[in-house]
Amino acid sequence: MATGADGSVIGVAAGGVPLPGEGEIYALAVVPGARRRGVGRALLTAAGERMLCFGATEQRVTLPSERDPSLPFFERLGFRPLGPTRLNRAL
């Protein structure tokens, strides 16, 4: 979870390691007013560091559609396609 200067929640990430070695991002959200400020990147990095503690060697995410607006964000952070809506990157 990320909070703003006033203590309000501005972003959240949820993930786990459902299969040995495979970290999975279940949710990543940042309030519109806090986007493009590194909040999503920080949350994704923190989730990846936590996944490493549980033996993950890669991080995966499934997007709702091939045209999901978050696709460029994930691509900039090194995610590559496994399928039309499934991406992964090495941790």
Rank of each mutant, 00 (worst) to 15 (best):
T85C: 14
A47P: 03
A47H: 04
I10L: 00
A2T: 05
T45A: 12
R50F: 02
S8E: 08
L71S: 02
L28P: 06
R80C: 12
G78Q: 04
F74C: 03
I10W: 08
G4S: 15
G7H: 02
Q59W: 02
R60F: 07
P84K: 10
V12G: 01
P32M: 04
L44H: 11
R67P: 00
R60W: 13
A14D: 13
A56F: 07
Y26C: 03
P32R: 05
V17D: 08
P32W: 07
R76D: 05
T62D: 15
I10A: 04
L82N: 14
G55M: 05
V9E: 15
G23P: 13
R36Q: 14
A56N: 04
G21C: 11
E22C: 08
Q59Y: 02
Q59D: 08
E58S: 14
S70V: 05
M51K: 00
R89L: 12
I25P: 04
R41K: 09
G33S: 12
A2F: 06
N88K: 15
V39H: 08
L82K: 13
T57S: 13
V39A: 08
V17I: 12
S65P: 09
R36V: 09
A46P: 05
A5M: 04
A42R: 07
M51Y: 11
A29F: 11
A2I: 06
T85Y: 01
L28S: 01
M1S: 13
F74I: 08
G4E: 03
G48W: 03
G11H: 07
G11A: 14
V31H: 12
L52Y: 04
R41D: 11
V39W: 00
L77I: 06
P18N: 10
G16A: 09
M1A: 12
L82T: 14
Y26S: 11
R41I: 10
V39E: 03
Q59V: 14
L63F: 00
F54R: 13
L28T: 01
R50M: 07
P84H: 02
G23Y: 05
T57Q: 05
A27R: 14
A14I: 04
F54K: 00
P18K: 03
F73H: 09
R35D: 00
G4K: 14
M1D: 11
F54Y: 10
